[in-house]
Amino acid sequence: MSAAESFAAGNAAERLGAVSTGNALELRGVGKMFGALAAIEDVTLTVRSGERRAVLGSNGAGKTTLFNCITGDFLPTTGTIRLFGEDVTRFPAYERIRRGLRRTYQISLLFNGLTVADNVYLACRGVSRGRFSFLRPRRGDTLVARADELIEAVHLTASRDTAVANLSYGQQRQLEIALALAGAPRVVLFDEPAAGLSPTERAELVAILNGLPEHIGYIIIEHDMDVALRVAERVSMMHNGRIFKEGTPEEIENDPEVQELYLGGGDE
């Protein structure tokens, strides 16, 4: 379908190129300045469709800024961002989301005045038609059903009608993930999903991530090496706003330079 579409669109070469490389995300020379401070600099990163990537780095390395540039929370100062072959560098966040990009936030950004069900329903609505609908959902509405499935997937069914403000921290983190999986996500950015979770909750998170359908790729920022190396196929290391190393989890784990920088000289 995508091939036929691109021929019809007339820029077949460009589209086919994108399809054949199958890249979910392509960042070229992306930089973001806050005043004179470069939060990230010259970041070039390619993530294939369906690939699971971890981004590691110390605090202030620019990981969350990188996410904010990819989702369009901030516009990058330099460079280009391509999402499934399409240049989205200047697109507002909602246009990128409608193209299959999703993200979670490090500090839960939820709708505190609304219930769990309403939160997830909004997430499902946001990526479908009828965002401006003045008609209430009817009984048996597919989006309401889809929202309930997501709520079940993140084990929040018992808290379905609870206001978000009354959820525990761990439950809020689970709801974050449900919001990011609404609709038909193709690439998801997880910003430290395990932060503040108990060991049991961590195990559950790893299970949720590994249980995602194969066509859904993701990038995960994670401090916990244990989590990161168990859910990622490839790892990118960030330091001082730059990506300085990329490889498989084993390569990264055994890299002396990485050990020095990230693990503080490695375990003696």
Binding site: Y94, I97, R103, F111, A182
Partner: peptide
């Protein structure tokens, strides 16, 4: 409640 998140939901 949260305009930024709404944009991130499409």
């Amino acid at each position: 409640d949260n305009p930024r998140r709404m944009a991130a939901l499409g």
